[in-house]
């Protein structure tokens, strides 16, 4: 489902205009992003938990350039799906099955 489809259906369900839905969605995503940017995690019922984790400095070997490199630390967004949703989607058929 593309973002446009999501907005379409969202506005239908909520009885709002698409523009309004889009604006709200932007704010919601903005808040999510800000929270994660502060290193704060959050959970949304039935959807799952979002949080960040630091990936430490790591030494890697680049086989193409034959060089060892030091990769700086970085923040990784982690998501773990809510149990409820996980169970519901576990055995449905998908394209890549």
């Amino acid at each position: 489902m593309t973002y446009n489809e999501l907005i379409d259906r969202m506005s239908e369900e909520l009885g709002l205009s698409k523009a309004e839905t889009r604006r709200l969605m932007k704010d919601v995503v903005g808040e999510f992003t800000d929270q994660l940017g502060e290193g704060t995690g959050f959970s949304i019922p039935d959807l799952g938990t979002f949080k960040t984790r630091i990936k430490e400095v790591q030494k890697i070997y680049n086989p193409h350039h034959k060089k060892y490199m030091m990769v700086p630390p970085k923040q990784i967004v982690e998501y773990s799906p809510a149990k409820n949703m996980k169970e519901k989607l576990k055995y449905i058929a998908t394209g890549d099955e």
């Binding site: 259906r9 969202m10 369900e13 909520l14 949304i44 019922p45 039935d46 959807l47």
Partner: peptide, 10 residues
Amino acid sequence: FLRELTQLVE
């Protein structure tokens, strides 16, 4: 709104 979002993601 968030519940609806969750629904639609699912």
